[in-house]
Design a protein around this nucleic acid. Structure first.
Length: 576
DNA sequence: GCCGTTTTCGGCCCGACTGTTTTCAGTCG
């Protein structure tokens, strides 16, 4: 948590420094942000154990930034940051969230129009004042308004990854209380939605007062909205709210069912209950005045003649019909995952060597690990060319030989994340692609194309016999950028014909394919792979988010190729 | 402000795209 706070401060400082046109320092601050974000240990812990010297071992942190971290840990503030903020009291988080707005634009908006937040920006854009600024015109003004509109749509919502870990921390603290008999997440958080409004926690306790008292004094709370006898509500430092409800044991199941939702799922369920002459509410299932279920969630479903329905499915997307017909999917779990096929190494964008990535993969119990570094078109990521891919192959072969000798059951596969160019061709020649174990191709440029052109572009890439996987197929960035214009049905048809695998990216701001598209792909018989797109070893643990998303898309083991054994996976890659 | 099998000082991933500017600046990845 401290790491995230520090990362946020340093990235804001980088922007301020860019606005002031200070050379080179901004990059240094940004590198430090990366170092902090990919650290698998809290800076506070490092400082406690090894002091300043320990902090300086963090990549991107030197003498000066280590001092600033120390200052933050000891005083909760960084003076140089406070000074910058005083000088330019601008809401950087809001303004940089608008696609197309960067430090230079913010500086101009601030100095000419005193724009300091999203509200000011929207007002000025609507008053057609932006177009008068140097470098701005009608189009940029319109784009800014579009960007603001997109932001507003997702306003007040947080990424699953922003909410889940913090809420789980609070849950595990409460769990330790002897007064807590049962505890569970509820709401959209339990259903694993990609973005969340607020978090819900449900508890059984004979002593609600104690539990509520402990809840409202959890660490990292900004304020307490309210507390009663059965309910309390808080806001966390990260800006999202958590509701806690205490329910009696006899209604725990029905309350959990009710507060997990979705609303649409529950409405359908209540109608079904009514059809059977029953009443379903948050207190139980009732036959007349007699309560026939309520203690457990599965008991609720059983009472209306249904098998238990996993929370991720409860969106009224056909799950109740499937349950009735006894055709519910057997959803995959994290334990079913045998490997990760989209990881970057220090050969280009990644923080860790292939060997370090492999060690972490082993610790996760994986059987295989796919290294898929960027290729040459992406110069900024130090993309590999044909020759470098060959050199990387040698390193991977050596590591694999070593593993065999040591009896280690992990195989490193060599792939790449090649680029789908404007016309659908790939930026690496076929001969080099043939030498790899698998090929991922993705779109990293020219994302604003017409639907027809974009669809044709992706289809051409899929028709390349060397391309196995399409990474983050629809290009969405949650809360920031919409999906590409593509004819997804046609893409699925060609994917099926060519045996192309579509990726489910676990990267928390992508989660692409999204749940609905996963379900469509499954129905079309298209295979998928859940990948983390890790740029460091610690990011391998993001796999969880991809699995949750896949569950929301009804995915079973047969649909997800990295739930398969190495042999089956390699055969599929070879023959498709 | 960081970093170092080309350096403890002098470097610091760079190309494409967009919109505006008719020769470039800002943003993105």
């Amino acid at each position: 948590m401290v790491n995230r706070e520090l990362a946020k401060i340093f990235s804001e400082m980088a922007i301020f420094l860019r606005m002031k046109e200070v050379p080179f320092k901004p990059q240094a601050y940004e590198r430090a942000v990366l170092g902090l974000e990919t650290l698998n240990k809290e800076a506070s812990e490092i400082y406690q154990q090894k002091g300043i010297e320990g902090l300086k071992e963090i990549p991107g942190i030197g003498e000066n930034l280590a001092d600033k971290i120390k200052e933050y840990l000891e005083t909760g503030k960084i003076r140089s940051y406070q000074k910058l903020k005083q000088e330019m009291p601008i809401n950087l988080e809001e303004l940089t969230a608008v696609e197309g707005i960067g430090p230079k634009a913010i500086k101009l908006l601030w100095s000419k129009l005193k724009i300091k937040n999203l509200k000011d920006l929207e007002k000025a854009a609507r008053a057609k004042k932006l177009r008068l600024l140097p470098g701005f015109g009608e189009k940029s003004e319109k784009n800014i308004l579009t960007g603001i509109g997109f932001l507003k749509k997702s306003q007040g919502r947080f990424l699953l990854s922003e909410i889940l870990p913090e809420t789980q921390k609070i849950v595990s603290n409460l769990e330790k209380l002897k007064e807590v008999e049962e505890i569970s997440l509820a709401g959209s958080l339990r259903r694993g939605k990609d973005t969340i409004g607020d978090a819900d926690i449900l508890v059984i306790s004979q002593d609600p007062g104690k539990v509520i008292k402990s809840f409202i004094s959890s660490p990292g709370i900004l304020k307490v909205w309210g507390q009663g006898l059965k309910k309390a509500s808080i806001r966390t430092k990260q800006g999202f709210d958590i509701d806690l409800r205490i329910v009696p044991r006899k209604s725990y199941g029905s309350a959990l069912q009710y507060f997990t939702g979705s609303k649409e799922h529950n409405i359908f369920l209540r109608k079904m209950a009514m059809g059977k002459g029953l009443k379903l509410n948050e207190y139980g299932v009732f036959h007349g005045k007699k309560m026939i279920a309520g203690t457990t969630e599965s008991g609720i479903y059983q009472a209306i003649n249904l098998p238990f329905i996993e929370p991720e499915l409860r969106e009224n997307r056909g799950e109740i019909e499937a349950a009735r017909a006894k055709r519910l999917p057997r959803l995959i779990t994290l334990k079913n995952i045998f490997g990760d096929l989209h990881c970057h190494s220090s050969w280009n964008g990644g923080q860790n060597t292939i060997s370090e990535m492999a060690q972490t993969a082993r610790a996760r119990g994986y059987r295989y690990l796919g290294i898929a570094d960027h290729t040459k078109f992406l110069r900024i990521e130090n993309g590999l060319d044909e020759k470098q891919l060959l050199n990387q192959r040698r390193e991977i072969d050596k590591l694999n030989e070593k593993f065999i000798k040591q009896g280690i059951d992990l195989k490193i596969l060599q792939g790449c994340e090649a680029n789908i160019l404007e016309n659908g061709s790939i930026d690496i020649n076929n001969q080099a692609l043939e030498g790899l174990d698998f090929v991922i191709a993705g779109i990293h440029s020219q994302m604003k194309m017409t639907k027809a052109k974009m669809t044709a572009r992706i289809i051409r890439a899929m028709e390349n016999p060397n391309v196995d996987i399409i990474s983050h197929p629809t290009g969405r960035i949650l809360k920031k950028r919409d999906e590409f214009q593509i004819d997804f049905e046609r893409v699925l048809k060609v994917a099926k014909e060519t045996g192309t695998i579509l990726e489910i990216s676990s990267s928390p701001s992508r989660l692409d394919l999204k749940d609905l598209n996963i379900k469509l792909a499954k129905e079309a018989g298209v295979k998928m792979v859940i990948n983390t797109d890790s740029h460091s070893a610690s990011q391998l643990e993001l796999m969880d988010y991809g699995v949750i998303q896949a569950r929301r898309g009804w995915a079973e083991k047969k649909d997800i190729i990295n739930c398969w054994s190495l042999e089956k996976l390699l055969t599929f890659l070879k023959t498709n």
